[in-house]
Amino acid sequence: MGIQEQYRTDAANLLDSGAVKLVIGYGEGSTPERRRPIFIRSAEEVGRLVLDANCIANLSAYLVPEGLLSDGKSVAVFLKPDGIRSVNILAAEAQLNPEQVVILGFNIDAGLANPLPGRKANEFAPLLASLKSAGLSTDLQREADRLEQMTAVERFEYWKEQFSKCIKCYACRQVCPMCYCRRCIVDVNQPQWVNTSSHTLGNFEWNIIRAYHLAGRCVACGGCDRACPVNIPLRLLNHRMSKEALDTFDHFAGESADQKPVLATFRQDDPETFIL
């Protein structure tokens, strides 16, 4: 039995037994290689679930809408390792109770989806520890190194060109499981911190503050990169922040549900090389 059949059966069993009230998974999308999130509430519908190497979106973002988990019932969700890390972060930030999240874990390897054993976020701890020791993406690091070898003026020009394309659609925010604030800083208008129109300066501010708010929280699912209609390399900014959190504070986002958020904690002996 393939992984898709197996997980359809698992989803049907979970729904039939009443263990979960909802299954969040992938369904057919608008083109053969696209998948869209679907929400299954009864066992008869599990035939709509699809699981293959095209299922790349991080579905953990669908766990945080207000009221979904407030009745104490559980929800099952298809997650890759990055999504499992997101669930851990959301739990650490008190946005959900990980006991209410049943994980249908899978990994995409060499064009195939493979099942990951485990049902609750804490059962994936060894997997996440191995991800931490494997380190961050070397491809992104190569690109980050290239930028860091430039002068500040050249780097500014590079980002100016990138950010000038931004149309402030906020798709990067909407797709991100970490952007759950009821009132985002860009929507605050007294004072107006970030200019609302999409000129380059306001775009700079928005993209800087977005990346900053993801410091030590981004799991590199790449959702923002894929959602961006003008192809700004958002993942690169996030990567730089993840690297800072990992190198300076040994913080690998979403390692466990009781990991303290990196900017909400401190050590007395944190490095301070730059302070006069």
Binding site: R155, E244, I275
Partner: peptide, 29 residues
């Protein structure tokens, strides 16, 4: 100030990465 120090560490590296020279943003005790 301990919390602030962590934020500055991260924010400073982000500014530098986007080409806002770190020489213009100073921190001191």
């Amino acid at each position: 100030n301990y919390h602030a120090r962590r934020r500055w560490t991260v924010f400073r590296s982000l500014l530098a990465f986007t080409g806002i020279p770190e020489e213009r943003i100073k921190f001191s005790w």
